[in-house]
Amino acid sequence: MRMIVEEVMSRDVITLSPQDKIESALKLLNEHHIRHIPITDEEDQVVGIVSDRDIRDAAPSILAAEQNLDILESPLQSIMSSPVITAHPLDFIEDIASLFYDYEIACVPVTHANKLIGVVTEKDILYTLIQVTGIREQSSQIEIRVPNKIGTLPKIAQIISDRNTNISSVFLYPSKEDQSERVIVLRVQTMNPMPIIDELKKQGYHVIWPNLPGMSE
């Protein structure tokens, strides 16, 4: 799987037109357990987006003595957000994640040649990132603190491949304690990581896990 939008987006998109009533949107949100509906015109161009929050903001307060339900008869164009932030099918997953973070949104319609072809939600992005951690493949986790130096990762990978063991995922992030160090998190496809850990230790690597909590370090 490539980490791009067209690989993770949903293609079955529920849409409404700007003239549809708020009531129809409310019904669709509840029926399909979704939180966003792109609003499109006759040419499938995205002209707005409506979220469950937009509708809640427009709906009468549940605390009010008399409920004025006429509001639900209003057209969606009266409450929809416009213009809409959209994504391209070839956009990277990381970019969409930053987009969600920066704009505090949770869904973007995906357009190609000005037509709606899909949507990507926060949930799709989270799911993809979970895949990246390698958790969906049977594996054991090893964490190693290493100096931030060229050539460390291949040496560690070699120790693992020497033991005929596959690597499911690799993370590399700066150590909290010391900027001259990195933490490498590996998921390896074996139930018995002990021979690998012993070899890593023998070669002087600092294996943070497996270890006793509060006893090591």
Binding site: Q138, S139, S140, Q141, T190, M191, W209, P210
Partner: peptide, 9 residues
């Protein structure tokens, strides 16, 4: 917990 231990699930 599968946080570290095989199989992870």
């Amino acid at each position: 917990t599968g946080r570290y231990l095989f199989p992870g699930t």
